[in-house]
Amino acid sequence: MDYIGGIALILFATTIAGALSQRIGVPSVIGQLLVGILLGPAVLNWIRPGELVSVGAEIGVIILMFMAGLESDLKLLKRYFKPAVSVATFGVILPMACFYVYGLVMHQSFERAVFWGVVFAATSVSISVEVLRELGKLNTKEGATILGAAVVDDIMAVLILSVFVSMFSSRSQQSPNLALSLVEQLAYFVMVYVLIRWIAPILMHLFKRLALPQSVPIMSLIICLGMAYLADLTGLSAVIGAFFAGIAVAQTPAQKEVTANISPIGYAFFVPIFFISVGLEMRFDHFWTNIWLIVGMTVVAILSKLVGGGLGAKLLGFSFNSAYVVGAGMVSRGEMALIIAQIGYQAKLLAPALYSELIVVIILSTVLAPLLLKHAIRRNQTELPAADQQAS
């Protein structure tokens, strides 16, 4: 029964840490992760990685990605399609290229150097959204572009992650039939389209007609877990199935009902266990030895997204300061990078000795991102009155 006490401790500690983090302006994710470090082998050693935490974390990351899909606004993406795609594309390519080169310089293998790029190609704009909302800039051209680019960025990051993990897994297992695996994965993406277009709406409608009060959320979980399982069977990451399942359900009239019912299950129980599990894996034996590696990675993480996202906006006619706002809004890595890092760690795509350092860089880029965005917005505001004066 010790695991019951462990779960109670995890839920209590993550709730308090999340609340304190939000009060001081830091994402609650960071507080939950720090609790994992504190309670884990790195500090107090009260909770250790085990089967219960592993299973809870796996379900947590699947629900987290399902919620990310549910919250993806495809209508907004259609409205700002060109700038969103441009910002997301350059915001993915530049970090991947920079971290690949940086990884080779730091004597990482080809796979591990590429995977550094995959981790930091991801973005999480939940923090940027709060800053934009606070400053009344959420409905501006820059704010809408950031939100649209986040949808494209998430899709690209999940696809790159799944393809890369699949290729590395095939290589490591010396699979004799890579062509068959690729055909299966292509068939899976065709099924994703069919799910979004026809299957999900039909299933959600049928279950809505049942007398059970929770039939619609239950059906959404069946779709989520089923797609995650099928993705895993084809050699893709389970998170891609959960993510596209969320997108599929989001296109149905049941989206708000599903969000209202699934969100408490995920964020109250399974998601905290996932972030705790990330902290439990961290060690600081070589932290000070690798301090300059951490500094270098943090600089590359911030500049590559800032320049990449900004360049994508500038090429489509945004002013310099406006492009600066868009680039700054894409810097935060947050939970998306943590998910990718954890999957890579389990797939042995990250060097165990550098896992903790990578997580620290994700935390630093997430904490510094809102400060950078606020500076960019203030600079852009000073440009607007000057432009108005010149026009008059």
Rank of each mutant, 00 (worst) to 15 (best):
R209P: 03
A231H: 05
Y345E: 06
L210Y: 13
G309F: 08
F120I: 04
T140P: 06
Q390N: 04
E134D: 12
N45F: 03
A248F: 09
M1V: 05
A157N: 13
L147C: 01
L9I: 12
L230E: 08
T234I: 04
L311F: 01
V331Q: 10
L371A: 05
H107D: 07
S162Y: 14
D2M: 15
F66L: 15
A121N: 08
G329N: 00
S181K: 01
N321G: 08
F207I: 02
M156V: 15
A231F: 08
A313V: 00
F270T: 13
I265Y: 03
R378V: 14
I16G: 04
I363F: 00
I146P: 07
W292K: 07
R209E: 01
S128P: 11
M191L: 01
G117S: 09
L180W: 08
M336F: 15
L384E: 04
S322N: 14
K314Y: 09
R48N: 14
M219R: 04
L180G: 13
H107W: 04
L315D: 06
I196C: 02
A328W: 13
A228N: 10
L138S: 12
V367K: 02
G334M: 14
Q22L: 07
E58P: 01
W292F: 15
K305Q: 14
C224R: 14
F115K: 13
I222P: 14
S365E: 12
Y355P: 14
V258L: 08
C224V: 12
T366R: 05
K314I: 13
I276L: 15
E357G: 00
N45R: 11
I343E: 08
R333V: 02
A149F: 07
A231K: 00
A313W: 01
Q32T: 12
I276S: 09
N290P: 02
A268P: 07
A179T: 01
A242Q: 15
I24P: 10
S175D: 10
S126V: 09
S166L: 05
G25W: 00
M65H: 12
S72D: 09
A376C: 07
Y80K: 00
S392E: 04
A376E: 10
G6R: 02
Y267R: 00
A387L: 08
T259F: 12
R171I: 11
R379A: 11
Q381E: 13
A187M: 10
V331K: 06
E383G: 01
Q214K: 12
N139E: 03
L364E: 12
A369P: 05
A353N: 13
I202M: 03
V125C: 10
V125T: 11
M65K: 07
A121Q: 12
D153A: 13
D2C: 07
M167K: 08
P201S: 01
I10Y: 01
S215L: 06
P272F: 03
S322A: 14
L364C: 13
L206N: 05
A376N: 10
S319R: 08
G31H: 12
V165Y: 11
T140M: 08
A211L: 05
M96K: 10
L44P: 00
L306C: 00
A323D: 00
T298C: 02
I276T: 10
L74T: 10
T298K: 04
L354W: 09
V300C: 05
S277L: 03
P385C: 05
N261A: 08
E281Q: 03
I93G: 03
A211S: 11
